[in-house]
Design a protein around this nucleic acid. Sequence first.
DNA 1: TTGGCATATCGGGAAAAGTCGATATACATT
DNA 2: AATGTATATCGACTTTTCCCGATATGCCAA
Lengths: 100, 100
Amino acid sequence: MDQVEIFKALSNKTRLQILGWLKEPELNFPEQPNADFENIGVCVGQIQLKSGLSQSTISEYLSILQRADLISSTRLGQWTYYKRNKEGLKKLSEIINTEL
Amino acid sequence: MDQVEIFKALSNKTRLQILGWLKEPELNFPEQPNADFENIGVCVGQIQLKSGLSQSTISEYLSILQRADLISSTRLGQWTYYKRNKEGLKKLSEIINTEL
DNA sequence: TTGGCATATCGGGAAAAGTCGATATACATT
DNA sequence: AATGTATATCGACTTTTCCCGATATGCCAA
């Protein structure tokens, strides 16, 4: 994954917020039946609702974050759940500490 | 400083390279008379030369990085020297570790 | 198998970023 | 004061990003 793409993914207010929300899903999203926040994540609809942006925009933003390895997704039935990707975030932290 | 602006500053290949070069100036730039790399930094002309981009572009890139608190500048005579800003980089690392 | 949701993808218009050459400014030397 | 050199700013053009509505796809229930 290109480093520039990681920073591009982070250079948007809404996308940064999404990552922040996913860090503490219990605080930022309503209770979810049949899907543990920690293991599975938060579904697209909830994230969209919270963001106030259109469905298509949020879907695209999530895929940008995923391509940058900052989040990962799980499909369950008709829902897609997204959660933080700890490895990707750790790698980013290392880039900053060792290369910049 | 807005977090988004920090990530925008980093979402460009050349600007990332500049930060990398400034991390180890002795390895990346020729000897400089009258200006210690550690204390004062590297002058704009050397950075431009190494980047291959135009003078105006590099001047602007350096000011983008400076506005994001990632580098700082010192004017000495007709030269402006830029160096890494450790505090800003540390703050960035903390943002990633605590907010994302 | 038809209809209804949830999500993804497509096409596009507006705004921002990338990058340049030309010009301005600031300082140093003669 | 005039010239030369280093850097900054301006104006313009091209490319990319933002964000939307419309449409497609995938899955489930009746």
